[in-house]
């Protein structure tokens, strides 16, 4: 198991001269930091900054370090940060296996084997050739999680990943996602409206005020 850690240093994001959010945080390996706050308080903006997609309208100062490396100004694909969205967003033009393979680093050995193992892990053995549009909501969510893990990120950002699932499925996915992230030793930042998410993540909680 690797030991990744993510640091956010005196981050300050402003929009039209008004400070939207200020944050300092350190997330250790396998830790999940939950950020909560009302709608429009800048949660998604925070994730966009970390991932490298901050829109030009915002001004940001501060630094992000991943495993000691300053990633503040790196292009998104070189940061080693993975994202899990509200929707599974499986590429509709690729098969399930194609989706899983999409993010695997070039040098990965024996990709088909790894894809098959990943599918087995989420109870979808033999689903590789399937059209993602034919999967159930829960199955899609699990494939999206596996796609993220197979891309070998060093940290993970989650933007309300469970909000669109029904109650039963939500419980199940929380279990799966948090367990997998911890097992992989990834520092994670979870953004949510749902107190149960925070409780289930079991880590520190930061409230953004507006």
């Amino acid at each position: 198991m690797t030991h990744h850690h993510l640091e956010i240093d005196s981050l300050r994001i402003a929009l039209d001269g008004n400070v939207l959010l200020e944050l300092d945080a350190h997330i250790g390996p396998g830790e999940i930091l939950t950020v909560m706050g009302p709608s429009g308080s800048g949660k998604s903006t925070l994730l966009a900054w970390l991932a490298g997609f901050l829109a030009g309208d915002f001004e940001a100062s501060g630094h992000a370090h991943l495993d000691g490396r300053d990633i503040t100004h790196l292009p998104a694909e070189q940061r080693g940060i993975g994202l899990l969205f509200q929707d599974p967003l499986l590429f509709p033009h690729l098969s399930v296996a194609g989706n899983l393979r999409f993010g695997m680093p070039r040098a990965t050995r024996d990709k088909p084997r790894q894809v098959e193992t990943a599918l087995e892990q989420i109870g979808l053995a033999g689903f590789g050739d399937r059209d993602p549009a034919t999967l159930s909501g829960g199955q899609k969510a699990r494939v999206a999680l596996m796609r993220l893990l197979l891309s070998r990120p060093c940290a993970v950002l989650l933007d309300e990943p469970f909000s669109k699932l029904d109650t039963h499925l939500r419980q199940e996915m929380r279990q799966l996602v948090f367990t997998q992230l911890r097992q992989a030793g990834l520092p994670s930042l979870l953004v949510t409206h749902d107190r149960d998410d925070a409780a289930s993540a079991g880590g520190k909680v930061i409230e953004l005020t507006h």
Binding site: F53, E77, G82, F85, G103, R147
Partner: peptide, 11 residues
Amino acid sequence: RWSQLGRTLGS
């Protein structure tokens, strides 16, 4: 989000 996803997956 499609291209953001692609980028975070290393493309």
